[in-house]
Design a protein around this nucleic acid. Structure first.
Lengths: 340, 340
DNA sequence: ACGCCATATGTTAGCGCTACCACAACGCCG
DNA sequence: CGGCGTTGTGGTAGCGCTAACATATGGCGT
């Protein structure tokens, strides 16, 4: 009633001050009761907790971050939100970080390094205690953003052997190589690589595949790449195009299971016998790949584990501990199924 | 060198103060240069922008939120992060909110109202300007969290006709009913409903299906429900179980496409002719459903559009505007394909 | 010439919280 | 029994930013 100077006139949300008053103690004790439980007598703590509960007190991260210079936020950048692969990585990250009180702030770069830089700038306004990035190829400016005031960073999916750099993943190149070896062992000699969404990981898979083929066959494999986003439909279309451009192909390696599944559906609909006429392999081992007819040979990748281990490594870094292994190789498994 | 009182000794990140000093102006002008561009002369603005660029200045949302009591955060709660359906909703939300400067803070409830309440408490510590929830069924405490200091909320996926409540979605019940009508029109009379992950939306689909079947056939359909998470594999297992429990079934409605795809794969592997021996329908129209053999009849749902429209409605509410329609029905489309 | 408004910039006082220091009360040691 | 650590508690300042209030400055009508 009396002319108050308050800017936000009783806008409702209870603050630590209200809780302190209600529990008849000081603000700092309320603060401690929530953060350093052991430093407050259980008597006082219970009083505070009751007061907080009746007032519906919810702490304010912004104020806490400002005062403590620890935000308990972790910024996560992934290429795409609608790609199951990255969602599983995020699930792994969250399963480690969430119990420790960290909140993920996520954004999707749409496979663009420029967009990645822009988004990271935005996420840095959250003053994250750590950052998780996909891949090891970033703009120079992106690396710079992270160094000015050094923020702990862990790279995921690929391995980064530069000193002072931390990564959890596996060798995409070796994954592609494994598929090539498999094709050649099974006697497929007119092999090809089909890829879309040409990010560096996709290209590394192709490079590994081509390397083995060239080393063994002394001839380059057929290669078909398009920049479009991967999808089942695109897989079908690219299969048609590959077989048209090069009708004597007898084995195709697709850079991911989405494309490979599209290829299998295409073959099913067009009466192409897999693997007798055309062998097919994919990458990632999506759930449907074990069930599709014929079941899809593919490279199983430890997405969930990559998320978990990257998060663990980041926690170490955020606590100032040096991780045991700065570049953790979680490997992959080639799974031979009916399609090859 | 001299004993400073500063708590964080030159920890690097440039502040608005540093920018002001470098641009030879005041803090408030820097603040305005970024937020209310028009209120600063272009001369000054350029000086400030240059200073900010050389210093690598990134604003601090925490401080901004604290001072302005607008966080520019929007809390989003979805049931699952590994379910494509919700990721498409999030993509829609983000496409509207991101250009307006809002940042999504997302968490997954794992289909649990209790977990939803716990997570929402956590997200409220971000002082979100708005909240987006999936479904309309929440714990009383959850609704209460949102009312103390009223935060704008929009419910997604289902419709909520309560006054003062905002929602964007479609009638899940009608979706189920549409499938039942289709089955009956095509002459399938021994029909069943198979569901997992029994959230209220799943149950509504089943209820709509059962209602039509009972109204028309004067007999209840076969129903098989399990609480497990949906997956292709589970779809296959449940199909086996349904056919064992009730061998004369000739049409099965699965509560989502994941299960239905599993059913199709099961039938393919076991030589069950679809749709001659068994018709199958799903829900959601996932990308693979158009390609699988036989292609899957399903209810296409406007996930992306729901996200967009819910976000638009939330923006209105956050600006204090009353949305044109407090419960926006985006409908659905039954797609008849080869499986029925 | 005067007021008066619009525009451009600055000053001040917090937003809600926690680091840092201070201090009281209570053992426990030699 | 004085000194000293240990435990519990509180006062105060300030994190980086912005709302609200000044305070210039210039143009315009009368």
């Amino acid at each position: 009633m009396a002319g108050r100077k308050a800017r936000s006139p009783v806008k409702g949300r209870a603050t630590i001050k209200d809780v302190a008053a209600a529990a008849n103690t000081s603000m700092i004790s309320v603060s401690r009761a929530f953060r350093e439980t052991s430093k407050v007598s259980s008597d006082l703590r219970i009083r505070i907790e009751q007061a907080a509960a009746t007032l519906g007190y919810v702490p304010d991260r912004a104020a806490s971050a400002l005062a403590s210079s620890r935000s308990m936020n972790v910024a996560v950048l992934i290429p795409s939100i609608t790609n199951m692969v990255f969602m599983e990585v995020i699930a792994g990250i969250n399963d480690i970080l969430s119990p420790q009180g960290y909140q993920l702030i996520t954004a999707a770069t749409d496979y663009s390094p420029v967009e990645e830089h822009r988004l990271l700038r935005g996420l840095l306004s959250f003053r994250p205690d750590g950052v998780l990035l996909c891949g090891t190829d970033h703009l120079p400016q992106t690396f710079q953003l992270l160094t000015e005031p050094a923020v702990p960073v862990v790279h995921m999916m690929e391995l980064h052997h530069r000193p002072g750099s931390y990564s959890v993943g596996f060798s995409q190149e070796s994954g592609g190589a494994a598929v090539a070896r498999h094709f050649l062992e099974r006697g497929y000699e007119r092999v090809g690589f089909v890829a879309s969404q040409l990010d560096p990981r996709t290209m590394a898979r192709g490079a590994g595949f081509q390397r083995i083929v060239e080393e063994t066959m002394r001839v380059a494999p057929y290669v078909l790449t398009v920049p479009d986003r991967s999808s089942i439909e695109l897989g079908a279309r690219l299969t048609a195009r590959a077989l048209q451009e090069c009708p004597d192909l007898n084995a195709l390696f697709f850079c991911n299971d989405d494309l490979a599944q599209g290829a299998l559906f295409y073959c099913q609909r067009h009466g192409i016998n897999v693997p007798q006429q055309l062998a097919i392999a994919g990458f990632n081992d999506l759930p449907a790949s074990a069930w599709i007819m014929p079941s899809l040979s593919t490279v199983a990748t430890p997405r969930y584990e990559i998320g978990r281990e990257a998060a663990k490594m980041l926690v170490d870094l955020m606590l100032g501990k040096e991780p045991a292994n700065p570049s953790l190789d979680l490997g992959f498994t080639f799974i031979k199924r009916e399609s090859s």
